[in-house]
Computed example of a mutant assay.
Amino acid sequence: MKVLILDNGHGKNTPGKCSPDKRILEYEWARDMVRRIAEKACLAGIHTEIVVPEESDIPLRERVRRVNALCAKYGTQNCALISVHINAAGNEGKWLNARGWTGWVAPKSSQKSKTLARLLYIEASRAGLQGNRLPSSSCYWVGNFAIVRDTKCPAVLTENLFQDNKDDVEYLVSESGKEAIATLHIDAIKKYFENN
């Protein structure tokens, strides 16, 4: 059995994780997105586990522990993790110009993590979500994030556009935007599980 593990990032008590106009609260958006991806995974016959069902902040160490417990339960070789986030170019509560989608792996990530990240990048590109970010020749970015660094299965952290870019926010709050972002995640994970 293949298992998609979904991490919905920050909780409601993480400060500053919102758009300048407060139309987007990252914790709400990420939980909605994870639910949408999980529903699509269910329809595709992919078993899904959500790491953080709570709305409150769960420390990274605990989120990593939960992921690794699922890897032990189902077998690391059967699992893949996606941690779902929205990016921000600054933390001063102002509208800024950076926009677009990125997928991140750990500095010493496995080849399978890189493969999943590339598949996500391809689907994001097909959806037209590259924005004004410098394209990645490897089709992923490298960051020392604990959720992808310390978990045992292939893992990618997705930054789904920018919560401090007005155009990105319009897309993120739209039903068509939410559907496109959920679809790119599930299309990539289906392709990944077909070959891994």
Results as ranks from 00 to 15, higher is better:
Ser110Leu: 08
Ser110Phe: 04
Gly100Tyr: 06
Lys22Met: 09
Arg65Lys: 14
Ser56Thr: 04
Ser19Asn: 02
Leu70Trp: 12
Met33Gly: 02
Trp101Met: 13
Val67Ser: 06
Asn68Cys: 05
Leu25Glu: 11
Lys108Pro: 00
Glu92Arg: 15
Cys71Ala: 13
Arg61Asn: 09
Val84Trp: 04
Val51Lys: 07
Pro53Trp: 11
Asn97Gly: 07
Ala106His: 01
Arg23Tyr: 03
Ile58Val: 15
Ala69Cys: 04
Asn97Val: 13
Glu39Thr: 06
Arg35His: 12
Ser83Tyr: 03
Val52Trp: 02
Arg61Pro: 00
Glu39Trp: 12
Glu49Ile: 08
Ala41Tyr: 07
Lys40Arg: 15
Val64Ala: 02
Lys112Phe: 05
Ile82Ser: 10
Cys18Asn: 11
Lys114Leu: 01
Pro15Arg: 12
Glu28Cys: 08
Val52Ala: 15
Ile46Val: 12
Lys40Cys: 11
Lys112Pro: 00
Lys17Cys: 00
Asn68Glu: 07
Glu62Gln: 13
Lys94Glu: 13
Leu81Gly: 11
Ile50Ser: 01
His85Ser: 05
Arg61Gln: 14
Thr76Glu: 09
Lys40Asp: 12
Thr102Val: 05
Thr102Cys: 09
Gln77Tyr: 06
Lys73Ala: 04
Thr48Cys: 12
Lys22His: 12
Ser113Trp: 00
Asp21Trp: 05
Leu43Glu: 15
Asp21His: 03
Arg23Thr: 15
Ser109Arg: 00
Arg99Asp: 11
Cys79Glu: 01
Ser113Ile: 02
Arg35Leu: 14
Ile37Gln: 05
Cys42Gln: 14
Ala41Leu: 10
Gly103Ala: 15
Gly90Thr: 15
Trp104His: 14
Leu116Glu: 03
Lys94Ser: 04
Arg99His: 15
Pro15Asp: 06
Asn13Ser: 12
Gly45Thr: 04
Val52Asp: 14
Arg99Gln: 14
Ile46Trp: 01
Lys94Ile: 08
Gln77Thr: 04
Arg99Ala: 13
Thr76Met: 03
Arg36Phe: 09
Tyr74Phe: 15
Thr115Ala: 06
Asp21Arg: 02
Ile37Arg: 03
Gly93Glu: 08
Ala72Phe: 00
Ser83Cys: 05
Arg31Tyr: 02
Ala44Pro: 04
Asn78His: 12
Asn13Tyr: 05
Gly16Thr: 04
Ile82Cys: 09
Val67Arg: 01
Lys112Gly: 00
Trp101Asp: 10
Ala38Ile: 08
Lys114Asp: 02
Arg66Ala: 09
Arg99Glu: 13
Trp104Thr: 01
